[in-house]
Structure formats: C-alpha cells, structure tokens
Computed example of a mutant assay.
Amino acid sequence: MSASFIVKEIFIYPIKSLAGITCEKAFAEEMGFENDRRWMLIDADNQMLTQREHRIMSQFYPQISDGKISITFQDHKHEFSIKEHLENSIKVNVWDDKSDVVEVNHATSKWFSEHLGFECKLVKIIKNGARKHESSRLKETFNVSLADGYPYLLIGSKSLDFLNEKLEEKITIKRFRPNIVISSEVPHEEDHFDTFSIGEVNFKNVKPCGRCIMVNNDPQNGKLKKEPLKTLSTYRAVDNSVLFGTNIVSLNSGTISVGDKVVV
C-alpha cells in the first residue's frame, strides 16, 4: 500500500544564493521549477558567487510579477525582465560542471556591483542542456539549472522537528533552502523514497543532500552561527558528509501545488 504525504511548502530561488520566494504552486521542469536558479552572480573572473563567501547575499530579496523580477536590498530596489539577456555567451563553472550563460544587462550587473561592493555580473542560463550534471550514484547525467547539484531538494517536516528538539535556538526550514517541504511522520524518511508522484509530476530520489557551512547562515540577518551544522554532525554524519533533505529529479513536467498528495 502506498504511503501518502502532503505538500506543505514550495520555494523557488530565482537567483542562486539570494533569498527565496514562497509559492502556492510551481511548474516542474527537468532543470528544476520554472524560474528556479536560472540566474546567478559571477565575479570579474567569471567565478560563481554564493553565500558561502558572501553572506550578505541572503539579504537580497527577489519577487516575480508581470514578467519581471524585482530585487530589494535594504532600501534599494531594481528590476529586470525575465526574458531579457545579452547575446554573448559566457563560460562558467558550477562546481565541477561547465555551463554556458549570458549576462542579463549591464545596468543590472552595475546595480549588484554597487551594493555588493565589488565587480560582478548577473547571468542567466537560457536553454535546457546548457549545463549537465552526472550522478555517480545513478550513473546518469541530468540537465540542471544553476543549482549546486540537482534540480530539486525535498525535506520532510519531521526532519526539521527532530532537529529543533535538539537545538536551543529553533530554526526554520529556510535555513536548508528546500524546493518542496512535505508533511512526514518519521525524521528523514524522505531519504528512503525511490520514485513518487506529486500531483501530475513523477519524481525520482537521487541521494540524500550533503550540507555545507551555508546552513549556518541565518537568512534573517546574514549572520553566521554555529548551528545547526554542529548538532546535525552528531547524528547525521555519513562518509564525511552531514546529510539533511534529499536531492530529487522530475521525470516529467507539470504543476504541483501546496496541499497536493505525495504518493510514495
């Protein structure tokens, strides 16, 4: 008999390592949710920028409306069209994966440069297949956007509850930057999913997600804490990784919504 769970929350992160957006529904594609991590900041040497080195990036808040993305940072705001980009291709790396991207426009790059305090560009991945990621576990290659490794991250609610029972200062699920949060009954049972469906979309579990120092960055203020990585490492350390949540891929396209059943 199939177990059933419920989708509690959906998030997208249009620009890699900036704040996320809570969604009531999202369109699942092979590369990830529509508009999820299709954009990324790179430095003057075309190297990707993330919160690992620049925690202030968590304080840039995107919103999507009427075909535009607006970014708010403190009292400053900037917007650009989802569809706009320059023509010249730029070669970048997302960890070990090579990708072709294009700059959005000079004005947007200048705005980010001014507020981050160093030269950078906002770039976009514009076609499926421009970046490929190989799963050593599945021996398969996936088309991914600009996410760290896989198109989607799934977390069960009980996994966070179990962690918060051990923490003095409770945290929210936003520390872990999931795409899909589901109701669950047992901590980390999502690790053991194989194939499952949400609404009209079928997903496949690839592997539990190894976490880095970025989960210690408090997204409310951009300050680095000792938790939750310190506590997680006492009970979720496996082969030099600290695991929380699981990486998944979609097997077809379609819309999923908060409240949808997850059939495992």
Results as ranks from 00 to 15, higher is better:
81 S>H: 12
129 G>N: 05
101 V>D: 13
126 I>S: 11
45 D>L: 14
60 F>H: 02
68 K>I: 05
66 D>H: 14
124 K>F: 01
70 S>V: 06
93 N>T: 13
119 E>R: 04
97 D>P: 00
55 R>V: 00
58 S>E: 04
80 F>W: 12
113 S>F: 03
69 I>H: 01
92 V>C: 15
109 S>H: 01
54 H>P: 02
123 V>H: 01
122 L>R: 08
129 G>R: 10
94 V>K: 13
48 M>F: 14
76 H>T: 07
55 R>Y: 05
66 D>I: 04
102 V>I: 01
47 Q>D: 15
59 Q>F: 06
109 S>M: 05
98 K>M: 07
79 E>I: 07
61 Y>L: 06
38 R>A: 05
57 M>T: 14
86 L>N: 03
120 C>H: 06
63 Q>V: 11
75 D>T: 06
115 H>Y: 13
127 K>Q: 11
101 V>Y: 04
109 S>E: 00
96 D>V: 06
82 I>N: 13
90 I>N: 08
126 I>F: 12
84 E>A: 05
107 A>N: 10
41 L>H: 01
104 V>E: 03
68 K>T: 13
101 V>T: 10
40 M>R: 06
47 Q>A: 15
72 T>V: 12
50 T>Q: 09
57 M>A: 05
114 E>P: 00
80 F>A: 10
101 V>H: 04
93 N>H: 15
83 K>N: 14
124 K>Y: 03
52 R>A: 09
49 L>V: 10
59 Q>M: 11
115 H>W: 09
45 D>Y: 14
81 S>K: 12
68 K>C: 13
100 D>M: 05
53 E>C: 01
124 K>M: 03
58 S>N: 07
88 N>S: 07
90 I>Q: 04
59 Q>N: 07
60 F>D: 03
81 S>A: 13
127 K>V: 08
79 E>G: 15
58 S>C: 07
87 E>D: 13
78 H>S: 01
105 N>Y: 12
103 E>C: 06
43 D>K: 00
118 F>D: 00
124 K>T: 10
76 H>R: 10
42 I>K: 09
68 K>P: 03
108 T>E: 03
120 C>F: 09
64 I>E: 02
65 S>Y: 11
96 D>N: 13
105 N>G: 05
73 F>Y: 15
37 R>W: 06
82 I>C: 08
71 I>H: 03
62 P>S: 05
42 I>T: 03
67 G>A: 12
113 S>V: 03
73 F>V: 10
36 D>Q: 14
73 F>I: 09
122 L>K: 07
97 D>A: 08
38 R>V: 10
44 A>K: 15
